[in-house]
Design a protein around this nucleic acid. Structure first.
Lengths: 219, 219
DNA sequence: TTGATAATCCATCAAATGATGGAAGCATTA
DNA sequence: TAATGCTTCCATCATTTGATGGATTATCAA
């Protein structure tokens, strides 16, 4: 039997799918508490009860949004892994930053939702942490910093978090940070990419100060 | 005539001050939308109407919280400036990271509130961006990267944002990131400081070249 | 003490919000 | 056509939430 999400994806023009899409955008913009079911229904152009018919209560819809979003991220990790295979560490990081920045910039709700999930404590908590732990480990593996999920050092994890969070911050906070930087919309993405690469790639390619044993480049 | 904030600070045991304090904690934890005036009143142990008597409508209370918070941050910048004066860049950054991490870790609402301000779009927007622009410029000056607020290059701004955001992310997201790192509460702060220093100080002390492929040499 | 000012609480309101029941419309198939 | 199941909308409810008016109590100077 197909899950509700698969059903919605199969027919992107259905109301069910359009509700999910609007919910994603609005939850990302205003957060869980700041988004009302009426706002979502109005954005789609349907009655509120249709929304409840398809997705159940608000928290269930939110959960569907989070699951959908995480699958999108995981798909991007696969893209990165494919493009980065066989390169050296600096090139892999370069590719990862490019791909992730482009992806998140094209789908702005994703980074908003993730950050809100990290920092805002809502009463209806949707489990997100083990997903993030998985993302961190995936990046570590894709970057060749670990053989498998069980062998990622805390140091590597912390460095990846720094990079991952920096990407999310810059993309999600564009409307906030861009005026401060004083660059236009098209230049912003380039400035961000360049800054992330220059500031953070050396943190991985340079020597690891604590253990001194950088994980060898096992292609 | 004293401002409401000065009045509240003068008498920290007054209900007015206790409301501000509880509001700060709860707004930081649940965000503007997720916090109700009843929650705040209950935390203080007073009737809701007393809250309205002292602070007016909810948005006004929130604004008072933000102003209070920004003054605390600016005070910390002064501390950093005093401690860092006369040192070299690497030492200044080291001090700045230590002082800011300690301060934010002791007052967890601050980083939460700032991040929520960056990323969550509420209908009742309180101006925060020019404050942040000021913070960025202050750091730039304190670090000796610029003579005055008018002469901070976009590159320097972007690097400072990366550092500043990284601090906020790690402190505010402790409950989220610490289990992933698998360290205990006391060790977390040290891991964070160490990671920030190792990964980000070279971004400032190294060359500001645009190819970014070089690894800094010093310390 | 008295009188004015400040602070607090009780009761209440209007609007917003999450959620549901049931009737009506639509589509597919027998 | 008739029957069945899926989808949509209207009307409505119970709570929650922001906010206020008015009565009551505390504070304190004259």
């Amino acid at each position: 039997m197909p899950s509700p999400l698969e059903k919605a994806r199969k027919n992107p023009d259905s109301n069910k799918a359009r509700i999910l899409s609007a919910a994603r955008r609005l939850f990302g913009e205003y957060g869980f508490q700041g988004t009302t079911t009426r706002m979502i229904a109005k954005a789609v152009g349907i009655d509120i009860s249709t929304l409840y018919y398809h997705w159940g209560e608000k928290a269930d819809l939110y959960e569907a949004v989070i699951i959908d979003l995480n699958e999108g991220i995981e798909a991007q990790f696969k893209v990165i892994e494919r493009l980065a295979r066989g390169r050296n560490l600096a090139d892999r990081l370069d590719i990862a930053i490019d791909v992730m920045c482009d992806y998140l910039h094209d789908t702005p709700d994703v980074s908003n939702l993730l950050l809100l999930g990290y920092f805002s404590k809502s009463k209806t908590e949707v489990r997100l942490d083990e997903k993030v732990a998985g993302h961190i480990a995936n990046i570590a593996i894709a970057m060749g910093l670990a053989i498998d999920k069980q062998h990622v050092t805390p140091q590597a994890k912390a460095r990846i978090m720094t990079l991952w969070n920096a990407v999310l911050n810059f993309i999600s906070g564009e409307s906030f940070f861009r005026p401060i930087l004083g660059v236009d919309k098209t230049a912003y993405l380039d400035v961000v990419k360049e800054t992330l690469k220059v500031t953070l790639i050396p943190a991985f390619t340079g020597r690891y100060s604590d253990n001194g044993s950088k994980i060898p480049e096992n292609q």
